[in-house]
């Protein structure tokens, strides 16, 4: 019997190609797959009981974020409005709209609407809205295009690297306190510099990336 059978060449070529393919596959799964939109769920808008549009309510009508998200300045959570808040206007406007039927039903039965989480953080992260608001981080620094979204979608990866980008260098993300809730704010020539705002708000980036800032 010969050392090399008639298919020896085929086996060897297959093995060589497999090594390259597996190597590239490993590279893809480590560096590419985690940042693909399918995994980060960026631009993903979960289905909701009511197709609520921030574009209509914020950009169109000019409602302040805090009209509905009442605890954003004082609490860990921005707060979801009770159905009473929806019905404040919708008891008089769009009273027969089909899409608002779940709202009317919720109000009549005194049962909360159940919205689906868009920005879901793992339980080991202790994110707090109020401190970011108090230190001049505007809503749209994280919820990028929220004021112009017809359906609320996730606009960031929420990866820890994304949090740290800002925690290591907060200055470019700060704005004057009266502009925090302005969804279309842009830095102008008259805006105080990020460094000046950082001093004014007593922000110390050297301790801002300590583990205990976000993890307990």
């Amino acid at each position: 019997m010969a050392i090399f059978g008639p298919r020896a060449n085929l086996w060897m070529n297959t093995a060589l190609v497999s090594v390259v393919v597996l190597f590239l596959g490993a590279l893809l799964s480590i560096w590419v797959v985690p940042v693909m939109g399918y995994n980060t769920q960026e631009r993903y808008a979960p289905e909701q009981p009511v197709p609520f549009s921030h574009r209509h309510h914020v950009t169109g009508l000019g409602l302040d974020c805090r009209y509905c998200h009442m605890t954003v300045e004082t609490g860990q959570y921005a707060g979801m409005p009770p159905t009473e808040t929806c019905m404040t206007c919708h008891s008089q406007i769009w009273t027969h709209a089909g899409v608002l039927e779940p709202v009317r039903q919720s109000f009549a039965e005194n049962i909360s609407l159940r919205w689906n989480w868009v920005y879901r953080l793992p339980d080991y992260v202790y994110f707090d809205h109020s401190i970011h608001i108090a230190k001049g981080v505007g809503c749209t620094e994280c919820h990028v295009s929220i004021g112009d979204e017809a359906l609320t979608r996730k606009t960031t990866t929420l990866y820890m690297s994304w949090c740290l980008d800002c925690h290591r260098n907060p200055a470019p993300h700060l704005r004057p306190l009266d502009q925090v809730f302005n969804p279309s704010w842009k830095r102008t020539a008259n805006t105080p510099s990020g460094t000046a705002l950082m001093t004014a708000y007593h922000i110390h980036p050297e301790t801002l990336s300590d583990c205990g800032v976000c993890h307990r």
Binding site: Q76, Y77, M80, P82, T83, E84, S106, F107, N110, I111, S112, L113, R114, P122, D123, Y124
Partner: peptide
């Protein structure tokens, strides 16, 4: 999975709960 710890969070129903919170 530490991402889902057995603790009660605002706006979250207890695991397996059928009834919803009252709106007010």
């Amino acid at each position: 999975n530490m991402a889902n710890q057995p603790k009660r969070l605002p706006f979250q129903l207890p695991y397996g709960a059928e009834a919803n919170w009252p709106a007010l």
